[in-house]
Amino acid sequence: MSYHDPEPEDPQELVGVELPGDEAVTREMAATFADEFAQLGLTRIQILSLYRRAEYTGAHQAWRLLGEDEIARIVDESLAVYGRFVWVVTDGPEEVAGSVAQPLRLVRRGS
């Protein structure tokens, strides 16, 4: 058994550190994720589950602070723009000697 003063290098000492932030910052973060993932073509349910899952701490924190309804509103706002469309990705033909090029179509759906 030994004694020590509080140890600044102990990671556990950091628990509970609060940094200044406010609702506007949280809202902005939530809106950023919504825009980004809507642009990527994720569906509404996929984007919402990102906020609902505790593993995704940033998004989830916004969900806990702002509530499901507000998050859904933010997501819908982004989807109203980026979710209208279906992004379609088509692979270029493989250059394999002798074979006929068969483009592969990957469809990413919007909302």
Binding site: I45, D76, L79, R84, V86, W87, T90, D91
Partner: peptide, 20 residues
């Protein structure tokens, strides 16, 4: 050419209530 990405308009825009 590696791939190409394009946009296709959906057939319709779903209402929020039944978005999925």
């Amino acid at each position: 050419e590696l791939f190409r990405t394009t946009v296709e308009e959906p057939v319709h825009v779903r209402s929020n209530a039944h978005a999925n």
